[in-house]
Structure formats: structure tokens, C-alpha cells
Design a protein around this nucleic acid. Structure first.
Lengths: 343, 343
DNA sequence: ATGAAAGCGCTAACAC
DNA sequence: GTGTTAGCGCTTTCAT
């Protein structure tokens, strides 16, 4: 179709009979330009189908209007939703979103950050990653790359967002404790990730408030693999006496937990209570419907974008901000008093 | 931390005591450079922590090594998985992935394409979108923007990938027909999207092979909203005589279908048979486990990346290619012979 | 084998 | 108000 090469501002200038400097000013409505030339240049640009070259602009303006986002797994619905919301908000502000998958590998994360830096992204949103480093974000941020953290450790000097995983685990545990459970298993993401650590902390706190001892063997969090094996659940179930309740807060682990319980013939909530994570179709439609810890993923994405945007607006070099996203426990039908039968 | 501005090739050249031209050649090992200078320049670059500016390179080389991908909904697991796989493959080839959400809105798609073009992405992967146009992709592709299609219409002159939705629907329908069902409801994405159209075609074909008439009232595909209302299912259930089987091939609609059926007290598969889509936790763990049409999302992503990469490798301006991803029907426990009770 | 210089497309500073 | 020019950081002729 279009035979000629892409139109440049030079073409526009020529067509409008002005210099390229004037063309630029007219197009950007910057500096002193007569209304008449603005009109002529705009018209010329339009008829030529001129679109400014963002690469050249970036080089000149030292801003690409691109931000990068790194998460362990783009396809994890917990991240995918967040990305969607963030992309929407960023686009509104004229930014595009470059995404990368770290596979929860520190080395890959490092590589991607370098790559994104070379690409001169204006800012970075960093999701949780193995062996994360409190200094990392502030190093970047104080260096040449504005960065904010999402569900990972970051120092007080930088902005970031965290879901209230600790509180979530605390409340889930309290909920079961209140029902009379005393042996509560916790299945969650690895302790090398902030959410994993936070959850354990919340769980412990609830336990200690009830004067119950923390028993590490009831916890499954060392998993670094993406999938949670039902064999892990079996090992939990074979503890004597066995747990009477399961809090399954790992996105990918819930299915394993349910499968393990089911395959062993344990009924929910008669034999065992379950608290799940994420208000998914599975939680709602599973029989029985699962009591679930949830939070607003949309809000996470929007707030992340907002946080970074604020950081990028040169004016407000201001205060670093920390946003905590509240969680909610939706009680459905998967929790009951522990069965009287000694397991 | 780093006080000085970013190092440029000029700094490297100075530090190595050569001209910037030589520095560039040394760094890229292009042209004639003595091994000794290569060593000196490389060393200088390393000690300075030099990283080439990709923006400047892009301007000069007329290639950004970025590709864009547009889908209706980044958070839809069907797309999220594909994006993850594509990103991985592209990254291996040195490309970064810019993502965008069209919300299934033609106007937004158009805007995003223009935006991506301005950003000089090297290529584009376009997912399905409302009112898609066969010419669109080839226009782009023959114009200035290599593009391939994913589950959408594209002309024979361009490359693209399609999941075998028609065959999938055909087989699902056959499966139910073979069990003795004659009134089969089909719930799928809008007919304004390629997958929706294809599925209906497959469904019709199976019906006609069985000598059964196509009854449009058994189809729910006009949905443009993201969620499928259970009221739609009620309307289906209240047809007289009611369908004895449901094929629910819309990602977002499966939950609605199950909910509608359940809330009305219909048992699966005793009262009604169901075929679902996507080998998700829900399909596996729902009681009963759902017979499901699946395909390899990972392979979709990889093949899309591969297709675009091939298109981008200037050498092979070659043949446009069309890849069809096969589907598989996993038969579980949600299908049975129709109940003898006249509904 | 190396240096000098042009130029990718754009914006901003400076003259007039 | 507009034209001219420098220069963002890089690669690539073209001389030497």
C-alpha cells in the first residue's frame, strides 16, 4: 500500500512551507507560533499521515514513556490481573508497558533489569523474587532508574505496595482457631518471597495469641516449584495427630491441596476445614464453596501504576509512599468446627 | 550511588584512547579492528560499566527489537499463558514484549496499533478483536509493520495462527450426539470474534452430519460483555423441550453456565451433560470433573513468537505460514446419555 | 586498522 | 514568530 518511506517532520515542514523547527513547535504547541502556521502545519501533518517517531523523541527528550514490569509468572492470574489494571492506568498517562518474566530466578531478574535499563524505560515495577534484597530497589531508584516494589521488601526510602498478607493469614488462622481448630496446616509460597514470610508471621501471631505453640511441621512453604504436589498434602495428612484445617494461600497450591484431600477421601468441611485464596471460579463453584481470602487485584494494579507515575512526575520527588492493600475473608462453606473423631 | 551520568560510548572511547568509531567497531566486533584494541575497549567498557543505549541504537539501526502484542484481555488466562510463552521465546531472540489491552474495542485496537507503530515496534501480534477485518493485518504487514494474527481473520498473504476451534466444537458436538443427545446448547464467545464463528460452524457441521436441524435458539454467542449471566442459562433451560447438554466454550462463560445449572438444581451428568473449555483447576476439581476441550497454550505462545520471528528475519520474506493448533477432548465425568425423563 | 564526519528524527536554544 | 543550528548516542561510510 504505502510505497513511500515513513513521513518525517521534515516532510511536514516542507509541505507546510516552514522550517522543521517551526513545524516541531507548531505540532507541540510550544513556544511562539502563529495560529495560522499551527493550522497549516497540523493540516500538512494530517494529510501526510505523519506520526512522530517516538524513538527519536526518546533520544532527544531522554524519556521513553515506557515502564517495565517484572513478575515471577505473567500467567499467574494474580499477576495477570494486576498487569491488566496497571497497563490500563499507565496507558491513560501515555506510558506503554514492557513486561518480563523472572521465573522467580534472581539471575534472570538481574538480566531483565539490565535489559530494561538499556532500553531506557522510565521506571520499573518489581514483583516478588527469590532472595530479594532490601537495597535493590533503593539502589536502582537512587541510581538512574525509578523503581517501586510490589509485594517485596524495599527500604523506607522508596515507594511500594504490599498486600496485607500478614493480616490475611492472621485472620484466616483466627477464623479457624475460633471454630476450635488447634492443628492448622499452612500451605503458602516460599519463605524466600515476601508474601510467604508475611503469611507465616501472621499465622504465628494468631497462634501465639491463642497460647498455642508454633509447629513448623504444619507448614509447607519451602516449595520453589510452580506446582504443589498432592504428595505434600499426603505428608501433611499423615502427621499424627493430623491437622484438622488447611489454610492454602499459594495460588498454585490450592488445587494440589484440594486434590490431595479429595483423593484421600476426606470431606470438607466435615473431616477437615479449608481456607483458600483468591475469589476465583474454583473457590465459588467448588463443592462446598470455599471460604476465601481475597483482595482487589484491580486496585493493586492501579495503585502500582499511580505510585510509579507519581514517582516519575519530576515535581514530586517527594515522600516515598507505601500502600497496603487490605484483604477480606469471605466465609463460605468450607470451614466448620473440627470433627470430634480423633484422627 | 552512581553520581556521574550514564556512560556513553564516548567515555569508553576516551578511556581506551581510541575514537568512538573504533570503539563502536570493537564493541560490536564489526569491520576491521585489531585484537588488541578489542581487548582494550572491552576492558574499558567493563570497568566503566558501560551499557549501550538501546534508544540511540534503535534510531540508528531502525529496529527497536521490541514487538507488541494486543489482546482483548491480558488477564484472561487463555491469553496470559500465551503471552508468557511468547515473551519467553522472544526474549531468547533478544526481543522485548510490549503488551496492550484492546478490551475488544475496535477503536482502542486502532489506537494501540498506531501507538505501537509510533514507538517503532518491529512487529505485532494481533489477537482477536471485535469486527476484525481480513485486510487489516495484510495492510499493516505490506505497509510498514510486520504483523501476524492470532485466532482472527487474516488473508492468505500473511502469517498467523489459529486454534482449531471449529474442529473442537465439532468433536464436542459429535461426542454428545454419539451419547444420544439431540438438543445441545452452545455457549461461546461472540460471533464477532473468529473463535465464536468457528465454533458455531463446527457445531453446525456435526449436527448436519447427524441429520439434525440447526436451531439458533440453542446458541448463546451474542454476548459482548465479559461475564456471562446465569440468567442466560436460565433462558436456555426454559426452552421447551430444554437442552439435554451444554457445550460451554467461552472462557468467562463456563462459570456462569455451571452456576446457572447448579442454582436450578440440575445435576451433572444425570440431568444434563456439560462440555467445558480449558484444562483448568476448575475443570479438574469440579464435581463431577468436567469433560473438557483443551489445547496447548504454551505451544500457541511459542508458535506465535516463532512465526513473527521468522517474518522479521529479513532473509525469509518467504511464504506466509498458517499454523493450526490442534485441540483435544478430555472426557471426564460430566457427560452421559440424556436422561429419559422428558424435561 | 583507525579517525573523522555524516546522519537517524527530533526538540530546544539562539539568533533575527 | 520563524529559521538556523546543535546535539541526544549510536553506527557506518569514507578517507587515510
Amino acid at each position: 500500500m504505502s510505497v513511500g518511506r515513513r513521513k518525517t517532520i521534515k516532510d511536514v515542514a516542507a509541505a507546510a512551507g516552514v522550517s522543521i523547527g517551526t513545524a516541531s513547535r507548531a505540532l507541540n504547541r510550544r513556544g511562539r507560533v502563529s495560529d495560522e502556521t499551527i493550522a497549516r502545519v497540523t493540516k500538512a501533518a494530517e494529510t501526510l499521515g505523519y506520526q512522530p517517531d517516538a524513538v527519536a523523541q526518546s533520544l532527544r527528550l531522554k524519556s521513553t514513556m515506557v515502564v517495565g514490569m517484572l513478575v515471577t509468572d505473567l500467567s499467574n492470574p494474580f499477576f495477570a490481573r494486576v498487569i491488566r489494571a496497571a497497563e490500563r492506568r499507565l496507558q491513560l498517562a501515555g506510558y506503554a508497558l514492557l513486561v518480563g518474566n523472572t521465573d522467580n530466578d534472581r539471575k534472570k531478574e538481574r538480566q531483565l533489569i539490565d535489559l530494561f535499563r538499556r532500553r531506557r524505560v522510565d521506571g520499573l515495577i518489581l514483583g516478588p523474587c527469590e532472595a530479594e534484597d532490601i537495597e535493590m530497589i533503593s539502589d536502582l531508584d537512587k541510581g538512574d532508574l525509578p523503581a517501586i516494589g510490589y509485594d517485596r521488601d524495599f527500604s523506607e526510602e522508596t515507594s511500594g505496595l504490599q498486600v496485607a498478607h500478614r493480616r490475611a493469614a492472621y485472620e484466616a488462622t483466627r477464623h479457624l482457631l475460633n471454630l476450635g481448630h488447634e492443628r492448622i496446616a499452612l500451605v503458602s509460597s516460599s519463605t524466600s518471597l515476601s508474601p510467604g514470610r508475611e503469611r507465616i508471621a501472621g499465622y504465628r501471631q494468631a497462634l501465639s495469641e491463642y497460647g498455642l505453640a508454633f509447629r513448623p511441621e504444619l507448614i509447607r512453604a519451602q516449595q520453589s516449584s510452580m506446582d504443589f504436589l498432592t504428595s505434600e498434602v499426603f505428608s501433611l495428612m499423615s502427621i499424627d495427630p493430623a491437622p484438622t484445617a488447611y489454610i492454602s494461600l499459594g495460588t498454585r497450591m490450592l488445587a494440589g491441596t484440594l486434590e490431595g484431600l479429595r483423593d484421600n477421601g476426606w470431606r470438607i468441611p466435615e473431616d477437615v476445614s479449608v481456607v483458600a485464596v483468591g475469589d476465583t471460579d474454583l473457590s465459588r463453584l467448588y463443592a462446598p464453596a470455599l471460604s476465601t481470602v481475597t483482595w482487589d487485584l484491580n486496585s493493586v494494579g492501579e495503585n502500582l501504576a499511580e505510585l510509579l507515575l507519581r514517582r516519575l512526575s519530576a515535581s514530586s520527588q517527594a515522600e516515598p509512599r507505601r500502600i497496603i492493600i487490605p484483604t477480606k475473608l469471605i466465609d463460605r462453606q468450607s470451614c466448620a468446627r473440627p470433627s470430634q473423631v480423633a484422627n
